[in-house]
Simulated scan of single mutants.
Amino acid sequence: MDINLVKCCQLFCMMLVLLLQVNLSTQLQCEQCDCIISGNNEDRGVHMTTLTCTEGGITWYNPNGALSLELRPERPGNYRTCYKVDSGDVKILISREGELNVNSKSPDQRSKFLMNDHNLQTISITEGKSHEICVEAMNSVVLYLEPEYKENIGYQKILFQYDSAKIPEHEEPSIEDCRPCSEDEILKAYCSSDFVVVGSMNDVQHKDEIEKTHIIVDVSQIIRQTGSHFNRLRRDSPYLQGTIVAPRKCGIAKGDGTFLMTGRVRLGDLTMGCAPYIDEWETIVTKAELEGRLQCTRD
């Protein structure tokens, strides 16, 4: 065989091995808007991805380097994007593109992270579980996730969940969040919500530090749910129990009676949607069925 041909084959094989090693060292896989990053402790590169869904998440195994994440919903507009992070024992800096806010961090603190030469504005520095943090942007926002570099950190995982909602142009968000639902909105919520349950309020806890209200509910009937958020605390209990979250500004108080409770799963929490009294719901749904306005099967 020709010597030059043998050398070319050897060179090609070496290049192929190197390419395979690069591909295996770091992988970014996205299915719709949920992504998985897997790598090793020595990889300090910058991963880049763009997500167009209004909600999703990143699971980052053996986090190192940095992630440039553009959240760009398909419909243009002014969006409020909120996120939560669970970084375990890893400290993670989250920034966004924009003018650098020099008062938000000290040089010593910033030098611990990787991308200290970018024109970024710090949003949060988290170790462990964060509360919900929100930013507003027109059309899209670019976030940078930078775990602090540590040698020999062992197995670690970062969970990042986000939710983007379009800000109403003519209606104050506080009004939108707290006003009672119309009959049509109740019917739509029944057919399309992530959870639809029948239950009562066990307790109401106001969390002023995170501007949320936690509603502990006793559930007697699950009509529909995504995931398993309602659980039986005792074997002999006739109820399942779960926690539904609402804005603190709505001033929700504990009420007696039985409700049809609807809502969606947002950033891992159950968020309250429409919640009419059960007798009010029976009147609304019976009327809608007679008029052919119910867009799904009544369970």
Rank of each mutant, 00 (worst) to 15 (best):
T50C: 06
P276K: 02
L294M: 09
L5A: 15
K84N: 06
A137L: 01
T126M: 06
E176I: 09
Q205Y: 03
Q156I: 01
G56C: 05
V204T: 02
L260M: 09
C178W: 01
E282R: 09
S220Y: 04
S68A: 08
C33R: 13
T126N: 09
R179C: 09
T286M: 05
E70M: 06
A246W: 09
L93P: 00
P180M: 08
D279N: 05
M15T: 15
I284V: 02
M261S: 12
L187R: 04
F12H: 14
F230A: 08
Y277R: 13
G263Y: 01
C296S: 02
L19F: 14
L69A: 08
G273Q: 02
N231D: 11
G199C: 04
Q29I: 15
F12Y: 14
T213G: 04
R264E: 11
K91Y: 07
Y61A: 09
Y239N: 14
D117Y: 12
R298C: 06
A275Q: 07
N139F: 09
N152T: 06
T213L: 10
L233D: 05
G65M: 12
V102N: 05
D194Y: 03
L19V: 15
G273P: 02
L19E: 14
K287V: 01
V6H: 13
V204S: 03
S25F: 10
S130M: 02
G56D: 09
N78D: 13
R266L: 01
R234T: 10
I3A: 15
I158V: 06
N64F: 02
H206L: 12
F160D: 03
N41V: 11
W60D: 00
M115R: 14
I133G: 04
V22M: 15
N41Y: 08
V142E: 08
Q225C: 03
V22S: 15
K157P: 05
R44D: 07
N116F: 12
Y277K: 13
T49S: 11
A165N: 10
V46D: 02
C181S: 10
S193C: 07
S130D: 01
W60N: 00
V198L: 10
Q205V: 04
G263T: 03
N139K: 13
D208C: 05
E74R: 12
R298M: 07
T126R: 03
C9R: 15
S164Q: 02
R264H: 10
Y155N: 10
V141E: 04
G45P: 03
T26K: 11
E136G: 06
S174R: 12
T271K: 03
Q27L: 13
E282I: 02
Y79P: 13
K188Y: 15
R232C: 08
A165H: 04
N202W: 04
C13K: 15
C53P: 01
L260W: 03
K254S: 06
Q221K: 13
F160I: 07
L114N: 11
D2T: 15
S104L: 10
T258Q: 13
C191M: 08
D177T: 06
M48Q: 13
H118W: 11
M115F: 12
S124L: 10
D86F: 05
H229S: 11
